[in-house]
Design a protein around this nucleic acid. Structure first.
Length: 292
DNA sequence: TTCCAGGTTCCAA
DNA sequence: TTGGAACATGGA
């Protein structure tokens, strides 16, 4: 598939911490879309893939989003504009809502490396085995599977105190037909209110689910990295007292979250989620050695 | 060893 | 309504 005028960077999109279960071997990425194992690689403007349709690739990797238009709308200052240029082609993936929801409950207070480990173990133990070109995959366990999974099973996968949240929330969601379809039709705020009712889902996890799987691009998740980026590059939008307060403690209180989240959504607008993902990635990269 | 991680929950004030 | 401790575990 030739990308022509469609800016896309497969490596950045899969490495930036929005999805957890993709693996790269040599220049091919291996992962699962829907229930199918696929492999994909990018060589300049060409995407090569196996076992998946072009339409599914386009919808999963958000290739139908007009990234030029999104950039134009969220480029409110030099910093975000430079960040967009630097990581140009990073796109928001349209994940499966169920997998995304459980993944981000697991993602609380964990490093991305540790999250990956948990989710791979969960899939290997309770998912379905698939093989493509001798490469072995395990699908993410379906909601029904969680009826027979015990707390001890989840502890064995390293979920720790998140185990009870995953079990309670999966049971609640199983009891509601078409739950995710309903949420897609709700406004951002209505859908967020619904999600926060579930155990283990607070404001940040809800925003991640809304952005990464339910198409709510105005969602602006604020985690430790985004908070750091705001303190460094956007502190002039807040009082000195507020910046000093959020700089002192590691965690973010509910009211602080509201302030930072509202800033992101009003400042960047309807595609705030895209701005967030570029800020998140920039801040994580800049913490590593050899950056710049 | 120690520190920290894509936070949420619970409880006291 | 708000502030702060507790929470399980693994990677760096």
């Amino acid at each position: 598939m030739r990308l022509f005028q469609t800016p896309f960077n497969l490596d950045l999109t899969l490495c930036c911490g929005q999805v957890f279960k993709w693996e790269k071997k040599e220049d091919w990425w291996y992962g699962i879309i829907g229930n199918n194992p696929i492999k994909i690689r990018q060589i300049n403007k060409d995407l090569e893939f196996e076992n998946v349709s072009t339409n599914l690739i386009k919808s999963y990797f958000g290739l139908n989003d007009n990234l030029h238009e999104i950039k134009r709308k969220i480029s409110k200052d030099n910093f975000i504009e430079n960040t967009l240029t630097r990581f140009w082609g990073l796109r928001i993936i349209k994940q499966d809502p169920w997998e995304c929801l459980i993944s981000y409950i697991c993602a609380t207070y964990k490093s991305i490396a540790a999250i990956r480990k948990m989710l791979f173990e969960l899939s290997e133990k309770f998912g379905e085995k698939k093989i493509l070109n001798d490469y072995v995959f395990y699908t993410f366990p379906k909601p029904e599977k969680f009826q027979s999974i015990t707390k001890s099973d989840l502890l064995d996968c390293g979920l720790g105190y998140r185990s009870k949240y995953v079990l309670k929330t999966s049971k609640k969601i199983l009891s509601r037909d078409s739950f995710f379809d309903e949420l897609k039709n709700f406004s951002y705020l209505q859908a967020k209110k619904q999600l926060i009712e579930f155990p283990g889902i607070g404001q940040k996890v809800a925003d991640c689910i809304l952005l990464f799987s339910l198409g709510k691009t105005e969602a602006f998740p604020v985690d430790i990295w985004v908070k750091r980026a705001i303190i460094k590059y956007y502190s002039n939008h807040f009082s000195k007292k507020f910046i000093s307060k959020i700089s002192r403690s590691r965690s973010i209180s509910n009211s602080e979250y509201n302030t930072l989240n509202e800033f992101g959504r009003t400042y960047f607008g309807e595609n705030a989620g895209y701005a967030q993902e570029y800020l998140f990635h920039f801040e994580r990269m800049s913490s590593k050695k050899n950056f710049l």
